[in-house]
Design a protein around this nucleic acid. Structure first.
Length: 125
RNA sequence: GAACUGAACCGGACGGUUGCGCGGUAUGUCGCCGAAAGGUAUUACCGUGAGGAAAGUCCGUGCUUCACAGGGCAGGAUAACUGAUAACAUCAGCCGAGGGUGACCUUAGGGAAAGUGCAACAGAAAAUUACCGCCAUUUUAUGGUAAGGAUGAAAACGCGAGGUAAGAGCUCACGACACGCUAUGGUAACAUAGGGUGGGUGUAAACCCUAUCCGAAGCAACACCGUAUACAAGAACCUUUAUUUGCCCGAUAAGGCUUUUUGCCGUUCUUGUGGGUGGCACGCAAUAUUUUGCGGAGCGUUCCGGUGACGGGACGCAAAGAUAGAUAACCGUCGAUUACAGAACACGGCUUAUAGGUUCAGUUCAUAC
RNA sequence: CUGGGUAUAGCGCAGAUGGUAGCGCGCUACCUUGGGGUGGUAGAGGCCGUGGGUUCAAAUCCCGCUACUCAGA
């Protein structure tokens, strides 16, 4: 499942302000309903709803190498979580890395994201 | 064996499963666009996929756009000499200076008799110096004097002899320094030797002078496609058209701040912005879209020339090109406890960061032969 | 990506062409008051971000780093 990245800065600020939040040791997850998902569905040739993903890794965590590594680990954890769970579609998901995630592995992220999606009621019944 | 010096290189390796970017080939019935041709999503396979510094952005180039008769001023950069190079503030060799027992290392290293400025405190005096002292005259002032004194980072070359009223490179011998001359060596900077001349210090990373060089801005450059139903700013009109809540100040009017908003949305005008592709990973030209030719400061191996930087020839390879930004996760074995660190148009240097390891050349000391 | 600026006492800032570093607020002690505030007197506190260089001498001049910050497209 491919992701479409969130590019617009105002969408991030909307997610922080309005979205539902779940804080864990390495990450903070924000989820918000995507009102533009219908347009995106029409644009998408497969005609499916899609979750848009945004990863936030601030400069405080380290240089470019450290930040790239954190992003890869987040992406891998998200991939594992998505392949196991069946998530609801049509949402904006913003994942913010916290300072301790520099030392984390993808299995940690995978567990945390599973918890986070469960408590945010993102799993299809 | 110990302690060092210099140079070069590596910067985890191999295997398995899953996953990502780009390129190519095939698929593309079912899905999407289209009248069709076709395109595309998808899927499969193959190839390929970060560094020695990719970093800092300190220099120099290519490339792009703009400007441009010629000359000068201003401004900036560089600074022994010879060479290398596309060019440089880089590099090599060499000279001078400084450091080290030595291998070797460091060096912004032109000019202070072109001019100006500055040299705190101390000291008589910080550049044409006379306070004490010494000497002469006359007498309590003038002149001569750098041998001696104290200060300071720095006080007019050192020492001996002659000389003198007292003294002084004033004169002489020896030595140190500076600048010409001659000879020898070297392309040259310069070195050595001989002989001559000279005597106001430091500072030019103070202004400055001399010589040489320099048009400006940058890939968010720039080129092409697209060009209004969008957005931003400003102005005018209108006044509830969208919404309409709170706080502060105020006599009122006007106003200010904040909140809500995947927000905003009365009309007109003006100005600006935006999307995509190329640039960009080999390019250009010719052509029967496949081949040929040319080019590239490209990489590797090797040969030749050169002390060396480097140059020339042959063969082979040319394969990151993303665009919120691709290299990851897990397991096994070895090794080790893994450092500094991520391309964003490209290249040559410099500077800075860097765990651990390998190789080569050499020095000193000790011992043995 | 490009081009600037700043770093000095706990805080906010001076220090123009090199010569031993100051101001305001704050802090400490004392005086004044019945007590506090105000006022007065005295005092402490600095390797001038960091590493080199030039110079007799560097916060100042030159070069390299670090951190913060501003502007442009």
């Amino acid at each position: 499942m491919k992701h479409i990245a969130i590019k617009e800065n105002h969408l991030y600020s909307k997610a922080y302000a309005k979205g539902q939040k779940f804080v864990s040791r390495n990450t903070v997850v924000y989820v918000l309903k995507d009102f533009k998902s219908e347009k995106l569905m029409k644009a998408n040739p497969m005609k499916e709803y899609i979750n848009r993903i945004g990863l936030t890794v601030s400069k405080k965590l380290g240089g470019a190498v450290v930040r790239n590594r954190v992003k890869r680990i987040l992406r891998e954890g998200l991939r594992q979580a998505e392949s196991e769970l069946s998530l609801k579609k049509g949402y904006l998901i913003v994942i913010v890395a916290r300072a301790s995630s520099v030392d984390a592995t993808s299995s940690h992220i995978h567990k945390e994201l599973t918890k986070a999606f469960a408590s945010l009621k993102m799993i299809k019944q």
